[in-house]
Amino acid sequence: MADPTNNRTSLSERPKDMPGVKRNHDGAAKEVKASTSPFMPMFEAFRDELDEHHDRRERIIKASRDITAASKKIIFSLQRVRALKTDIPPKILSETTDRMALMQKQFLTIAPDLVGINAWRYQRQISGGIQEYMEAVSFQHYLQKQSLITLEEASSSIAGGVTLTGDDYVLGIFDLVGELMRFAITTMATSGSLPGSKDEGSEEDRTILMDLRVLRTHFEALDTTSCGGTGLGKDVEKKMEVMKTCVEKVEAAVYGMIIRGRERPKGWVPDLSDDRAPVESY
């Protein structure tokens, strides 16, 4: 019993003592042996390595969070746009450009942490930010060109050569569908018509609903069963449901617009046609 008691008092006197200092049997030789573990140099090297790793990890988590926040703000700004394939109003454009520049700075600061062998090491930490970035970049791309940004285009838009994985690209595009839905419904509510534009050599507008359906078709054709529970396989299931709901919401809204539109006298247009300017500024 003497031993544990001793131990407790000596610990409270010198709380920083290493364990194993001055324990029972045979004093003298102990003292020297126990005070320095022969493995210390090895563990000191490990400590330095692990510290570097944790520092990198924390820098990346922070950058990822900042990139996510900036992307969300860009998306908010872009939701005030009211027409497809036209120049984005200068006020909105300057907002998004500023934020984009900030994000690129973030990417540049963490780029050295994400090269070579570390390119995939912090995937889980950076992936949230990159997906949100994908959502913002693809949304802006769609508003300007009414087409889906390619993986290569998106990848080269990221500063510092940070890897854009196929998984993050796809998951970002899934979220894009939600933004397109919001954009379509708001535009319909404020301007009374579905956004769209004419492709070269075609008479009819290609509407956002057509685009959403094309996206949906492609997503549904994507076979991710082989991914199992890893990364993509797990997330896709949930996102697929959300994506379908989004497309259906636009379909229902268009249905409503057409059926109620019929009841109106021909040529009657809601008195909202030049509502664009005020909407932009709210």
Binding site: Q146, L148, S202, M210, D211, R213, V214, L215, H218, A221
Partner: peptide
């Protein structure tokens, strides 16, 4: 509808490449 504008919204290569990657 989608077939009428094959290159409009989605470059078909995008999803082909993704599938290959997967």
């Amino acid at each position: 509808m989608a077939d009428a504008t094959p290159t409009g919204m989605v470059d078909p290569r995008i999803f082909e490449d993704l599938q290959t990657k997967i």
